[in-house]
Design a protein around this nucleic acid. Sequence first.
DNA 1: GTTAGGG
DNA 2: CCCTAAC
Length: 573
Amino acid sequence: MFEDGRVEKTTPSNSPTKQISDPVVYKLVRVEGDGRLVPATDDEIMEVVDLLKDDNSEMHIVAESGQAVGISIDDSSSGKSLSELSGFSKFEDVYADAENLEAPTQETAAPVAPSSDIDQMKQSVDAAECSKSPDQMRESELSCAATSLLPDFSKLKGEICLDHLSIRELHETFRATFGRVTTVKDKTWLKRRIAMGLTNCCDIPSTSFVIKDNQILKLGEEENSNNVNCAVATDQDVVAIDDQQTDSDISQKKQSEDCQIISGKRLNCEYIEDSLPEVLNQEQKTVKRLRKPTKRYIEELSEVEHHEHTGRSITPAKSCGRDCPKSCARPAKNVSPDSRTYFTRLDSVAGLRVPCVSRVRRSRPRKDIMALVGFYHSSGGMAGKSVSKTLGTSSDPKKIQNQGIELVEKDNQCLAIDKVEPEQNLEAKHGDSLDDDASEDNIVTVPTAKGGIRRKHHRAWTLAEVMRLVEGVSRYGAGRWSEIKRLAFASYSYRTSVDLKDKWRNLLKASFAPAPTDKVMNPRKHVSMPIPAPILLRVRELAELHAQASPNLSTSKLVGCGGSVNGTRSGYL
DNA sequence: GTTAGGG
DNA sequence: CCCTAAC
């Protein structure tokens, strides 16, 4: 996996930091996928020579001899970055982290003993004015900041320049920044590391810079190197993570420090992971950071959304559209809206039981109404016929699509259907009251040839409706359908004026057709309730009446009083 | 918006 | 019952 990958490298430490008393000889190696370190070939060395020159200033890592050997790289988690970036520059952090691992034990051995610094710091918490050596004085200032573990560079007021600090001061600053001590003696590394901590940024120039308002101000630094720095820093992160993950002995302190830097760099590099440890330094908490929601969180969110969505489609409380303006306006009958009981109404004339789902007009049957199908079938009659017919339409390949549309449609439909209407039961007792407000909704969407779909809802005309229609025609005149609708079918929200007109037309047809003879008719077709002869007779009368009156254009009102004038002319409307 | 008529 | 032209 890392065959092509990068070569880690070593050179004699030519760090500008002359304080390094312990020169380290680096050896260029290649990290194999399994973590083995393979001595680099000449080609590989040549490959990175340029990098060495460019990044020389970053290479003055102080590492105890032999530490480089212990570095292992977990390719499983960092392979990508490793393959993309120069492994060589990782050394900086790798070494630093390796060093940090042993920081507690190294403290005493370090040339600048951190422990003594700590003591001094504690003693000089409020001793900024103590008369000490100039060096100590500066230390005191830094120590004051360090005691809170939060950097307080108030004396520098927003502008921090680390360039002129000594190694020891840098150590103090480091400690103030990260809350831990370090034995790294490399000034540049310390500066950059501190700058990273202070600015939460990995874009730290390798040369002089000033930190102002938590931002890096470069001093004559070119833009080009910045990108490199960022990338390098990211790479360093990866290495640090790997180191942290593979090394179980790691100290909590170090973990949090790594984490902090990592998160800060992530922020900058817009690479965010959700595996942040819980332990964060204080200053971390003050830093806003982008955090990708955890997977679980995302799932929960989506689930909520889903619930909301489905909930919306299931329980819409919207007003019905054109179909039932009236029924919606009417006061709701005192029924639980959630009740899904379906009452049946006994049609006294036809002797049929038809479902009475209250005033829902032109909406497709809900799923649960399908459960009633069996009932429809067993009950026979025209209701059964109509339902089976509509069901047949819906069971084609388009069914799924239709159902999807159904949901949408229902949102726009009056869903007061779930209400049960006691009055209908009363009417059932009354028999065929003209106030009968029967309703049933079995609406199916039918694909049309045009590619669209149309809602097909079939509601068989009850005898009561027919009678009411006939009366309406006789009273207001055939053709005044809107008036009939308004005055006689006000409570039949599902019957439009067009419906009335159509029905009347059918009635006319029936009335002038030869009397049905049972033997001829297919019993299957005859499920449709026959219109009682008296009604048909009345229809014919009215038709003849209109046939006569209508040409006049003036006398639709005469219809009611006209009685039977010259009978048998054209049976036409 | 209503009505008539074809489908 | 839907669709649409005509009014």
